[in-house]
Amino acid sequence: METCLPIQHAAPSEPTAGTPFAWPLPFQKSKRVERQRVNSVPNETADQVAMTAPETSVEALNAMLLAVAVGQDRAAFRGLFDHFAPRLKAFVRRQGTDPQMAEEVVQETMVKVWHKAGQFDPAKASAATWVFTIARNMRIDHLRKANRPEPDYNDPAFVPDAEPGAVDRISRDQEAGRLHAALTVLPEEQQAVLRLAFFEDKAHAEIAEELGIPLGTVKSRIRLAFKRVRSEIGEIR
């Protein structure tokens, strides 16, 4: 399945492409080299990619988004666009959306990223997660024409988080790296269930139907996957 492939990186034909994806963990890097060996791709390539994938990538995306928020920085926005647009398109296409409609949803999502950038808070989520939630909402809004009620952080009745300590604040970026590592080693059957959930917004019961497995199995796979990912993230909390 194509999603088992190793990570994506900026296409060589796009020298101006934004920041390549970050794989900050040495563990991740060695995993990648191993895979490349299996596919008999020269090791130099793997090493090169690993080296050119700077550890600051997640931070760089956050910085770009903050630059858009604070200074309406168009160069930074270009960087965000080059990074996210092709991923958003792949994400939207997974719903079975035709290419033209997908293009439209991607563009609208990026317009929304520009206008809502001021609401981005790197202490709450990484730029990638924030953009993902905008794309998800756009999909619900645009393709399913439904409402998705959300809490309002400015509501006086809203119960705020306990003030995060300095450790929590700096751990968000590390968290993203850990998360990618955890997803890479997740068993395929667990990944498949998560993909159906996130890419096709299928509820548990629909996933069970689609895969022809009992609902209990779907639940336990998701629970296991989630537990595993959380424990990876949890180590740095």
Partner: peptide, 12 residues
């Protein structure tokens, strides 16, 4: 974040 991580792993 898991959703975002899965999205990042899609072929662009």
């Amino acid at each position: 974040a898991i959703g975002a991580g899965l999205m990042a792993r899609l072929e662009t």
